[in-house]
Design a protein around this nucleic acid. Sequence first.
DNA 1: AATGAATGAGACTTCATTCAT
DNA 2: TATGAATGAAGTCTCATTCAT
Lengths: 239, 239, 239, 239
Amino acid sequence: MLFVCEQANNMRVDAEMGAAGAQKRPGAEAEPDVAIRRRRTQAERRAEAESRVLAATAELVAEKGIDGVTLAEAGERAGYSRGLAGHYFRSKDELLAAMAEAIHDEFNLQRRERLRGTAGLARLMATIDASFARTSVGMVKMRAYIAVLMGAAHKPALAEAVATFNRDSATEFGRVIASAIEAGEIRPDIDARTQALILSAALRGIMAQWVLDPAGVDLARIRTEFMGLVSRSLAQPRS
Amino acid sequence: MLFVCEQANNMRVDAEMGAAGAQKRPGAEAEPDVAIRRRRTQAERRAEAESRVLAATAELVAEKGIDGVTLAEAGERAGYSRGLAGHYFRSKDELLAAMAEAIHDEFNLQRRERLRGTAGLARLMATIDASFARTSVGMVKMRAYIAVLMGAAHKPALAEAVATFNRDSATEFGRVIASAIEAGEIRPDIDARTQALILSAALRGIMAQWVLDPAGVDLARIRTEFMGLVSRSLAQPRS
Amino acid sequence: MLFVCEQANNMRVDAEMGAAGAQKRPGAEAEPDVAIRRRRTQAERRAEAESRVLAATAELVAEKGIDGVTLAEAGERAGYSRGLAGHYFRSKDELLAAMAEAIHDEFNLQRRERLRGTAGLARLMATIDASFARTSVGMVKMRAYIAVLMGAAHKPALAEAVATFNRDSATEFGRVIASAIEAGEIRPDIDARTQALILSAALRGIMAQWVLDPAGVDLARIRTEFMGLVSRSLAQPRS
Amino acid sequence: MLFVCEQANNMRVDAEMGAAGAQKRPGAEAEPDVAIRRRRTQAERRAEAESRVLAATAELVAEKGIDGVTLAEAGERAGYSRGLAGHYFRSKDELLAAMAEAIHDEFNLQRRERLRGTAGLARLMATIDASFARTSVGMVKMRAYIAVLMGAAHKPALAEAVATFNRDSATEFGRVIASAIEAGEIRPDIDARTQALILSAALRGIMAQWVLDPAGVDLARIRTEFMGLVSRSLAQPRS
DNA sequence: AATGAATGAGACTTCATTCAT
DNA sequence: TATGAATGAAGTCTCATTCAT
């Protein structure tokens, strides 16, 4: 099971190639093609290995929690050696931060696709729907995501990443709500920023509850009821 | 099992002197009575020491997370020896479970007091309000509480306790909503059980967000908006 | 093979007992004798174990150098578990620092005994002689000592200890030379401080050479020649 | 094998450009000549790269000690890749041995220049002076030199090199002293070989002390006092 | 020739747990 | 009962070394 998240990995690859380009070593000028092809291949191998390690890390986080992961197991689960994860990410914190970013990027990608072409209240609903839709990719990523969110309380390396998530999420919701208010589709007597935070936090709480007890949480029903709750609560009342 | 003292760091000496004071109360009496009183004193000491250890554990969980706690530090933070926590609770898992129970008991006590004499929609609102009110005791317990909730995903010892929390919370909310529906104060076209789960999870999500970023979360405002959101959404519409 | 160095270990023991005394635990007042005897026994065991670990560390340093020592091996060589050295000294740096101090203390003790009742030029000669005499306790300690001295260049934890050694050595030599000058036994046209540094450093260089190549260094002959060299060089010329 | 460049951190680009400049010297010629020139260029590049790696290694040894050096860092510090040092020298031991030899060669070169045209006691003094003069090239090489000397105790790869150093140094001093005795400039009642060892070891001890604590060691003053000490001690007394 | 990807061994360090006092 | 001594397992991290490109 691999991460798609081409952004995160490509960025890494780009960085490497950039560095390699700047550091042209002697003897490479004669056969630039060969050199470039060689490096690309190395870089690709590395990118794929990193991707696999991140995916394996997510699995392990989902299974054992943030503190249950070990660098060695992440490497092995990815099909490599015990030392590889440490070799790439230097420390457990960095590994976790990279994993968090990868998941976040993937979620963002999904959300953007779902929101394409929506606006106003419909866009807000689509945003909420996208949160529930994430669960369709399976519980592993969601468990890892939730674990990262909570782990931020004690791991500075994660706190940074999570702060970004929060900013992104809050501004996204806030913008949508504000524009729906302007469009007259959402009642103007609410505070967009506060509502955004409430919705974001509530969705996370629901997802957390789901990953903790999938059998006890009927997610489809919750999705329906939650969206009804929100629309009844925020929709502009008919005058 | 409740926390007795808010400040876990009181010098142990104080505790001893308190106990000594209690011991010297009356005059001299017959043998059996002395034995009984002595035993009571021992039991009291033990209870107080346990209580302090649990409070210290909660502090440490709040600071460092479930996995950051160590038995030795729990004992020391409580003002006792490195070995005491292990001596009382045998293992780290049992210590954590006991701590979780203690926090839950305390929260329950608070809630019951707040709900006394309410009914229907008002009782639902009071229940929600009680959740926010918990935060007034400070962030330490709430952080520990959230940590326990999330830790349940990977620690069987906690899973049991958290399952109880969930049952309690869901039934409490569910009962209140159902009775409010019966009373005609809440619209009947919602599913009480699902709404209960949503509210419970949403509140937890909000609390989690708060403990993660207290400065970024205006809890008072959220309380107002959230209660408005709920009442608009659930209240029986005027026909 | 144990360190004698009662000072270092006693200090540790005292500290522990002092702490224990201050931290009187409840229930201990009734049988102070038992309590004290218990603690003393524990403390003694601990002191002996520490002493053995330090001696084992010195052996290992002599064999493999500062960086070749491992905490685990120090514990095992001392006849305990792999974890003990780490348990006592927390870190490799602290272990090495403690070992350095122990050796220094032992050397100081020896020197003081040898100097008892000497003065003037004779005292200077006795000081030099004491340096050579150290070698009689075997090469292990001397190798470890030299290793510590040089290791100070890269290990802050050792640098501190070695700075003390240097101060001690320089002031000792300096005082002796200065008083011999006053007594008219050493020519006054030399700088006592500089000569002290030269003698101290030269002796260390000789010892280093010896531990590096014991077969190639005839220490007895060097002792004679060196003392002749110094006395010819420093003695007050007959007018 | 000598160090070519004092500043190891010159950009590699400079080296390349220098080589390129050398390559463009004359005009176009016949095939074989071109081949030869090319090969010479390759060899030169290699020699320069090795030299830089060795210089970088000396820097790192000076900073972090023998065990603190890593192959990767040696390559990078020299301005090349992480793999180069390992590629050239196969193993860390060989790298260190090569570095030791390079430093020794450089020191020997300096000494020979200083001794040119001296004889007898003056030559002995010049030899001593040369030791102090080494310090003028900066502390880096001297620190590395001392580190190598001490490292020989535990690293077979260095032991061989250091044995050579010792032989060279002892024979050099021994020869000079013996010839000065023959010339009647040094008293005949000393043992040349032993004195040689003493002087050599003493100088090393002084240098070690200096690199450990440059601020606390007034090298100029020590040089003066030490040479005075030696000349007073060894010079043939006027009959 | 040169780079850097990958491995695996080993050290430090931290604790839960057991046990002696 | 309470303390803390001692063990040993595990995890993080760092590198020397090998190997593919």
